[in-house]
C-alpha cells in the first residue's frame, strides 16, 4: 500500500516537475523568431555569478575552517540559519540597509552591480559555508600533523596539505553557487533596480513583457541543462574526493 502511495508521489514529482519541461519543448518546436540574449548581458550574468561565487567562498572558507575545527553548534546554526529566510525578504532587507548606507556615507549601492553582488553573496554565503564545512570536516588531522613533524610550519602545512585536500569542496561550492547565481532573478531585479540586467531578468521579461515563449524556452532549457551537468560534475568530484 505504502509502496503504491510512494510510487504515486514519485510519479507526481515527475509529472509536476519534469513534464512541464515538455511544454518548453513544444514551444521550441513551434518555431518563430529566436531572440538570444546580447553578449553584454551574458557577460554581466557570468561576471556577476563568478564574482559572487569567488567572494562567497573566500569569505566562507575561514569561517567553515573554524567551524570544522573548533566551532560549536550554536555558531554553526547561526551561520546556516539564513538559508531558511526567503530571497525576497533578504533582498528587501538589504534594500532598506542600502538606503541607510547611502544616506550616511553617500555610497550608492541600489541599482549598481556592486549592490547586486552584495545581495547575491548575502544569499549564497550559507551554501558556501555548508559545502566547505563538509569538505574540511572530513579532513583527518594526521596528514597535517605529518606535515608539521616533517618540518612544515603551520602556514606551510595549510597551504601544502589542507588546502589541496579541501580543493574538491571549494570546486563543489563554486559550481553550486555559480549555478544558482546564473539563474538569479530577484537580487538583480530588486537591488539592481532592473539596471543590472541578467539572463534571469531576461527570461523573466520574455514571459511577463514580451510573452515570447520560444526564446524563454530555449534559454530555460539551456540553463536547466547547464545546471544538471554541473550537478553531475559536483557529485562526481565529491565522490572521487573520498579516497
Amino acid at each position: 500500500m505504502i509502496k503504491k502511495v510512494a510510487l504515486v508521489a514519485f510519479a507526481a514529482v515527475v509529472l509536476l516537475f519534469y513534464v512541464p519541461f515538455l511544454a518548453l519543448g513544444y514551444y521550441m518546436s513551434g518555431g518563430g523568431v529566436l531572440k538570444l540574449p546580447s553578449m553584454s548581458m551574458l557577460a554581466t550574468t557570468f561576471m556577476l555569478a563568478l564574482v559572487t561565487a569567488a567572494i562567497a567562498i573566500a569569505l566562507a572558507y575561514p569561517a567553515a575552517y573554524y567551524l570544522a575545527k573548533r566551532g560549536n553548534e550554536l555558531e554553526f546554526a547561526l551561520l546556516i540559519a539564513p538559508l531558511w529566510v526567503g530571497t525576497l525578504l533578504k533582498a528587501y532587507s538589504l534594500l532598506v540597509v542600502f538606503s541607510v548606507v547611502e544616506r550616511i556615507t553617500g555610497i550608492v549601492l541600489w541599482g549598481t552591480a556592486l549592490g547586486v553582488v552584495v545581495g547575491m553573496v548575502y544569499e549564497y554565503f550559507p551554501y558556501a559555508v555548508l559545502t566547505l564545512y563538509a569538505a574540511i570536516e572530513k579532513l583527518s588531522e594526521t596528514p597535517t600533523q605529518a606535515a608539521r613533524v616533517l618540518g612544515a610550519s603551520r602556514a606551510q602545512a595549510f597551504l601544502r596539505v589542507e588546502l589541496p585536500l579541501t580543493m574538491p569542496g571549494v570546486v563543489a561550492a563554486f559550481i553550486l553557487i555559480f549555478l544558482f547565481a546564473v539563474g538569479e532573478v530577484i537580487m538583480p531585479a530588486v537591488l539592481g533596480a532592473w539596471k543590472v540586467y541578467t539572463v534571469g531578468s531576461y527570461i523573466w521579461d520574455l514571459y511577463f513583457k514580451a510573452r515570447d515563449f520560444l526564446s524563454g524556452s530555449v534559454l530555460s532549457m539551456l540553463l536547466a541543462a547547464l545546471s544538471l551537468l554541473a550537478t553531475y560534475v559536483v557529485v562526481k568530484t565529491i565522490r572521487s574526493f573520498s579516497i
Binding site: 583527518s140 594526521t142 596528514p143 600533523q145 605529518a146 606535515a147 613533524v149 616533517l150 596539505v161 589541496p164 585536500l165 580543493m167 579516497i243
Partner: peptide
C-alpha cells in the same frame, strides 16, 4: 620525524 598509525600519507 614520525610514522603515524594511520600512516597519514598525503592522498593528493
Amino acid at each position: 620525524s614520525m610514522v603515524f598509525q594511520d600512516l597519514a600519507l598525503f592522498p593528493h
